Amino acid sequence: MNTRSPAKIGLFFGSFNPIHVGHLIIANYMATQTDLKEVWMVVSPQNPLKQKQSLARDQDRLHLVRIAIDDNPKLRASDIEFSMPQPSYTIDTLTYLCERHPDKQFALIMGGDNLPTLPKWKNHDLILRDFEIYVYQRLGYELGELATHPQVKVFDQVPQMQISASYIRECLAADLPIQYLVTEPVLKYLESSGLYKKSRLKE
Rank of each mutant, 00 (worst) to 15 (best):
89 Y>V: 06
156 D>E: 13
48 P>A: 11
188 K>N: 14
119 P>W: 01
156 D>W: 04
168 I>W: 00
85 P>G: 15
99 E>R: 06
134 Y>M: 14
186 V>K: 00
160 Q>P: 13
171 C>R: 13
181 L>S: 00
157 Q>T: 13
127 I>T: 10
87 P>R: 08
63 H>I: 00
22 G>C: 04
83 S>N: 14
156 D>I: 12
145 E>R: 07
90 T>S: 09
134 Y>P: 01
24 L>F: 09
68 A>Q: 03
95 T>K: 03
77 A>E: 09
99 E>P: 00
174 A>K: 14
141 Y>H: 15
127 I>W: 03
60 D>H: 09
1 M>I: 13
151 Q>S: 15
188 K>L: 10
83 S>F: 11
83 S>G: 15
176 L>D: 08
91 I>M: 04
72 N>F: 05
7 A>E: 15
44 S>H: 07
149 H>K: 05
149 H>Q: 11
32 T>P: 01
113 D>V: 07
79 D>Y: 06
38 E>F: 02
36 L>A: 07
41 M>I: 07
29 Y>G: 04
79 D>M: 06
57 R>F: 12
193 S>W: 00
27 A>P: 02
172 L>G: 02
21 V>D: 01
68 A>E: 05
124 H>T: 10
37 K>P: 07
114 N>A: 12
18 P>Y: 00
34 T>R: 12
141 Y>T: 14
87 P>F: 06
20 H>N: 02
11 L>S: 02
140 G>F: 03
165 A>F: 00
189 Y>N: 00
99 E>D: 05
148 T>Y: 13
27 A>D: 04
105 Q>E: 15
123 N>T: 08
66 R>A: 05
169 R>W: 02
1 M>G: 15
2 N>G: 06
160 Q>D: 11
4 R>I: 12
31 A>P: 04
33 Q>F: 06
95 T>M: 00
190 L>D: 00
130 D>Q: 14
117 T>N: 15
198 K>P: 05
50 K>L: 11
66 R>S: 01
192 S>L: 04
37 K>T: 11
92 D>Q: 08
149 H>L: 09
110 M>W: 08
132 E>D: 15
180 Y>C: 12
61 R>L: 01
162 Q>W: 12
103 D>Y: 01
76 R>Y: 01
183 T>P: 11
33 Q>L: 10
27 A>M: 06
3 T>K: 12
22 G>P: 11
106 F>N: 11
169 R>C: 01
9 I>W: 12
76 R>T: 05
3 T>I: 06
45 P>W: 09
116 P>L: 06
95 T>N: 07
202 K>A: 14
166 S>Q: 06
64 L>Q: 00
43 V>N: 02
5 S>C: 10
171 C>W: 04
53 Q>M: 13
146 L>E: 10
42 V>A: 05
31 A>S: 08
